[in-house]
């Protein structure tokens, strides 16, 4: 930090007075970090593209996966993510305003804008947590075939997806979750789905207006819906009921989609979280007057660079996960 607070006394080149490319030491290092982090994220997104190209015809359609908005019921593709994007851009703006106020040595305005930035970041991370929760919980439920493919259920007339809870038949069964205390002691299984495959299949048979929708995308960019006969035949190969998504099963389709969703948005969310923590540290430094004493608010600029980078990454994640 010595080099950034030079107060005019002459230092020689070896003492750090020389600034390559007109950038101070700290700023240059922040750019080094940002560049390497950008390459990490690019690696993730390229890996996502690789897997997506591999399963081009069966990849889930984001518009049909992320359709929820908090406090509202219904089908709202994209709206909430758009809101999140806007929040993050907004907090980027308050950050850049804080940097600008820092250049003018206006301490109170820096404090105010930093505060707004932190609030924006918290709203964003909260929204992401909610989005994760919704994704993990799932919306309609589906069955998985022996080959690991997902079969969803749609209404024959409207074409809308139908939740398995709406048609599955209650059949009394002896089957209970296998825990250590009631079965083999050295192994156990997770929570059982609410319905068994048999219950779903029986319910499907007695509701003649239901059809099965497969993962395959047809030439119009929609998921293929099977005829009633094909649906009944296909349902025979079902091996388990899937509700929601985790790293192993995903009711929305390809499990890799869920894996990449958790990994990439999780890694980005972690960046936002650490950005908030760093912002809070700098925020208190500004309040106690550290940078006022240094006569330089460059630290705000450096943390700002990181914060904008997080925003920049989100722009790409938004495009490749939700739009394309």
């Amino acid at each position: 930090m010595d080099t950034t607070v030079t107060t005019g006394e002459k230092q020689n080149v070896w003492g750090g007075a020389n600034q390559p490319l007109d950038a101070s030491y700290g700023k240059m290092m922040m750019w080094f970090f940002i560049l390497s982090d950008a390459l990490t994220f690019s690696g993730f997104l390229c890996a996502y593209g690789f897997s997506r190209f591999k399963f081009m015809e069966t990849w889930p359609i984001a518009d049909e996966v992320f359709t929820h908005v908090p406090f509202f019921h219904g089908n709202f593709p994209m709206y909430y993510v758009a809101f999140m994007t806007f929040i993050l851009i907004m907090s980027s703006v308050t950050m850049v305003l804080a940097v600008d106020a820092g250049h003018k040595m206006q301490k109170n305005r820096v404090i105010w804008y930093m505060f707004m930035t932190i609030i924006g970041g918290i709203i964003f991370v909260g929204s992401q947590a909610w989005e994760w929760g919704t994704f993990i919980k799932g919306s309609y439920g589906a069955v998985e075939t022996k080959g690991g493919r997902i079969l969803q259920f749609v209404d024959a007339e409207s074409g809308h997806q139908v939740a398995i809870a709406d048609f599955a038949k209650e059949i009394a069964s002896e089957r209970t979750a296998h825990e250590r205390k009631n079965g083999i002691w050295f192994t156990k299984e997770g929570t059982l789905p609410t319905y068994t495959v048999n219950e779903v299949a029986e319910g499907f048979k007695s509701n003649s207006n239901l059809l099965v929708r497969t993962e395959t995308i047809n030439e119009h960019g929609h998921k293929t819906v099977l005829s009633r006969e094909e649906s009944l035949k296909k349902l025979m190969s079902a091996s388990q009921v899937v509700e929601g998504a985790n790293l192993i099963h995903n009711e929305y389709g390809s499990r890799l989609f869920a894996d990449f969703f958790f990994f990439i948005t999780g890694f980005h969310g972690f960046h936002v979280f650490s950005g908030i923590v760093i912002n809070i540290v700098i925020f208190f430094n500004v309040i106690v007057g550290t940078y006022e004493k240094r006569r330089s608010y460059e630290m705000v600029e450096k943390v700002g660079l990181y914060w904008h980078f997080v925003d920049l990454v989100w722009v790409f994640v938004f495009t490749f996960f939700y739009l394309v």
Binding site: A23, W31, V93, M95, L305, H308, L312, V315
Partner: peptide, 16 residues
């Protein structure tokens, strides 16, 4: 625009 205006790349040295 995020890099150029928010991250001040517009004001930085050309080779940086």
């Amino acid at each position: 625009y995020i890099a150029w205006d928010f991250m001040h790349l517009r004001d930085e040295n050309k080779f940086l």
